[in-house]
Design a protein around this nucleic acid. Sequence first.
DNA 1: CCGCTCGTCCAAAGCGCTTTGGGTATGCAT
DNA 2: ATGCATACCCAAAGCGCTTTGGACGAGCGG
Lengths: 361, 361
Amino acid sequence: MNLKELAAHLGISQTTVSRALNGYPDVAETTRRQVLEAARRFNYRPNPAARRLATGRAGTVAILFPVERNLLVDPHFFELLAGLAEMIARTEMELSLRATPPQEELETYRRLVNAGRVDGFVLSSPTLHDPRIAELTALGAPFVVHGRTQETLPYAYLDIDNADAFARATALLLDLGHTDVALLNGDAALTFARDREQGYRGALAARGLSAAPGRVTNAPMTEEVGYRVARAMLEAGERPTAFLASSVLLALGVYRAARDLGLSVGREVSVIAHDDALPFLKAETFDPPLATTLSPIRRAGYRIAEMLIERISGVDPKALQELWKVDVVFRASVAPPHGVRRGAAAVRAAGDDAAARRPAR
Amino acid sequence: MNLKELAAHLGISQTTVSRALNGYPDVAETTRRQVLEAARRFNYRPNPAARRLATGRAGTVAILFPVERNLLVDPHFFELLAGLAEMIARTEMELSLRATPPQEELETYRRLVNAGRVDGFVLSSPTLHDPRIAELTALGAPFVVHGRTQETLPYAYLDIDNADAFARATALLLDLGHTDVALLNGDAALTFARDREQGYRGALAARGLSAAPGRVTNAPMTEEVGYRVARAMLEAGERPTAFLASSVLLALGVYRAARDLGLSVGREVSVIAHDDALPFLKAETFDPPLATTLSPIRRAGYRIAEMLIERISGVDPKALQELWKVDVVFRASVAPPHGVRRGAAAVRAAGDDAAARRPAR
DNA sequence: CCGCTCGTCCAAAGCGCTTTGGGTATGCAT
DNA sequence: ATGCATACCCAAAGCGCTTTGGACGAGCGG
């Protein structure tokens, strides 16, 4: 069933049917109702290819990932993807997944935009100085960034308040009496890593403390890295009493390192990690359950899809900037440093500080 | 630059340019060369929407995943996706990712095919009796299955020889002297789980052995499940000396359970897992390194994309059925059962059995 | 020299939609 | 009566490609 047939059936012109369907004003309400009704009855759906050709819009949003860059190593990326796909599925749009060699990335954006194959993009894992922002802005292509950069150009983004989250997590540890806290962070070029370090250092500074040398590491966020780094620190003479990790995978490695050295997490070693709520690796099932700064990345995907669609329909990027507060979830992986005796009251207070705050949606 | 302009530039008709570009026979070689050359020089790319409209082909392959089914919990799915995306990116096609509520899954396939929005599908995680096969076959839509089902309809698939892999892994353990081997498997409705169990039971039977009751479990393949199941078994009176796990994530849980109980993997407990080569969780970096049946799922993605394109261009499904042999990789998580003393020779023999065999590509 | 086949090319008709640029009728002020 | 909005509708022109159905010569056997 196509437009022409539908129009013939109704005894009115294609033009009018098309306008009725697309909500144009100059069609009588009675006619519109008839058209809508008939369309529903015949289960009419406009041919997307024809519509694309006629309008020049692609009806597609894309996310591209550079093959062999860290992204692919990264389950977080796919959680985001899942969120995007779920939301996009509720619209008439498509979500196109595109692989690209990293050197050709900008070129790929350019091609897709110029060929009119894509109406908008989601940018994932932005770096501090991310050339994609300027490129896409110059191309005039709508996009939404998951995270932020140091670009001054106005652009749409959704980010979590990483600095605040890690400041609060650090403060929690300090309140419990820790003074030597290590930060296992992601790649230093990524904005979230910088923000988290900033939150961490800020919280230390607020107590007149500062990180001992070597206490902050930047590396891919894998179990293996977490293990190696934590093990090295724990074997050294002066060892940290608490770890802050930028991912649950890293924390998994920290747990392993502690166990290998006969140290018990939640006693000799405290651990807090940022939790993107990867469904196959749940912090609450760790042993002991892992305290986290929690922000489900899937939900970010939902919202980013919505924002992108708004952006495509012309909403100003400055009106599409969201910064979500993050929950701090207190669990048994965190305790006062071993040997330090504090009143139960102090511990309880720290727990209260961690009371759930819902994201700022 | 579009076809018309290109043709005008060359002083020949659109028709001829189009035919030259698309490899039709009735165009002179000299003309064709000119056209190709000009197309390259002007960086001409046919407008996909126009082509779609004219040909009726969508230029898109899709993979849909039911929201909230296990798939999304499953990093394996995304590894496959990555492989598909990489290969599809080298063609003119698009890869569309579509979320669907599980109850509407078949309906979604139907809609996409009837609306001509998709030329072919990749089916992931097939169950023993998977209704998608019959549905898509009836619709006449090309598809390739990652895995197999018990359907008798001819369909294109790429599967690994799960039965053989697990038979060999089991045999390796038995050769080392184990007699009580547990199998931590995935959801029983999934074909690969059935095949692996079959391989496992076959290998036992070949030695006149059989699995003790409760030695085979079916559940989601997460770290947590691996931990719980393994822990329960290891705490029981009669405990298995070796575990076979259907995923590296499960094995991770087994490691944790063993450690918690003061048992050492590679001594008191042997572990082999199937390894899909998830980039963020590498068996070789486990402690001790984890023995595996190895078959990179990413590579399967590459090949499936190729197969799907062939299928779309008319190749018979029966000509597109591949069963890949799987490497068995011997590592330190496997040893003779504790207490059993065997000659070094026997161990070495078992190691040889595990010599790498490349996939049957 | 005729009629045929081949090899090469082309004009034009779609594909199914959107959008332009009116057309007609009605109502209202002039 | 005339002029002019207003409300509603339509024919037809694209959008950029593929494909149909020839056209036109050249070469060739009869």
